[in-house]
Structure formats: structure tokens, C-alpha cells
């Protein structure tokens, strides 16, 4: 038996999907142009802050997470929480050059170019 399509909520018409796409493209433009100012804080906001906004818009309006069952968002949120635990648990060691019984010996190549 064929399963039914996702029809249990109000849907956007074609025009609003195109409008959302337009907003996403405009945000893309800002995320490219913002860092050109060379201001670190502005780069962080325009590049990474806008990435979060774009991802949110795609999830909400294109993946329809706003009208999906709540537990779906909870599952995805739980996975992201696991990633934060991973990051929080590992980052302190990764970011330090040495510990009680260990020391990092890897040295990143100083030159910008690759192997030729």
C-alpha cells in the first residue's frame, strides 16, 4: 500500500517557496560580502551566524520541521546535543599542546603552499 504524502498541515504555495529561496540567496550574498570587510567579528556573524539562519530556514520551510511531529525535532536535537558533549569532552585536550603524560609533537607545515 502506498503511503500518503505529508498533507497534515497548511502548506506554502509556489510563490512563497520562491520567496524563501530568494531570502536564502540574499543571505548567501551577505555571507560572502560580509567577510570582505576584514573585521573578524563581522566575519563570524556574517559567515557562521548567517549559516545558522540559512540552515534553520531550510529545515523549517523546506524540510517542514515546523509541521512535523515534535519528537522528530527532539531526535535531531538530541543528536546535536551528543555532538556538543563530544566537543566539550574532547576539545580541552585537543586545544592544549601538552598534558600530564603526553605532548603533541605534530608541527603544521609553515608554508601556505602544498606539496609540489
Amino acid at each position: 500500500m502506498a503511503e500518503r504524502a505529508h498533507t497534515d498541515a497548511p502548506h506554502h504555495d509556489e510563490t512563497s517557496y520562491v520567496a524563501i529561496w530568494g531570502v536564502l540567496c540574499a543571505l548567501l550574498g551577505v555571507s560572502v560580502l560580509g567577510p570582505m570587510a576584514g573585521v573578524r567579528l563581522l566575519t563570524l556573524i556574517t559567515a557562521f551566524g548567517i549559516a545558522i539562519v540559512k540552515a534553520y530556514m531550510v529545515c523549517r520551510y523546506f524540510m517542514h520541521l515546523n509541521i512535523e511531529k515534535k519528537w522528530v525535532a527532539y531526535i535531531l536535537g538530541f543528536m546535536l546535543a551528543i555532538m556538543l558533549v563530544f566537543f566539550g569532552g574532547v576539545a580541552p585536550d585537543v586545544l592544549r599542546p601538552e598534558g600530564l603524560r603526553w605532548q603533541k609533537t605534530y608541527v603544521e607545515p609553515a608554508t601556505a603552499g602544498g606539496e609540489r
Partner: peptide, 21 residues
């Protein structure tokens, strides 16, 4: 959704490692 939940961990781990390094 379950596939994407597992994919979230795969890509999340990769991106998290990238940010740390």
C-alpha cells in the same frame, strides 16, 4: 528521519573535529 539522525552525528563529528583542529 532516523537516517538523518545518524548522518547528523557523522557530519557533526567531522565538523566538530574540524573546528577543534
Amino acid at each position: 528521519w532516523w537516517v538523518l539522525a545518524s548522518e547528523t552525528v557523522i557530519f557533526g563529528g567531522l565538523l566538530g573535529s574540524y573546528v577543534m583542529m
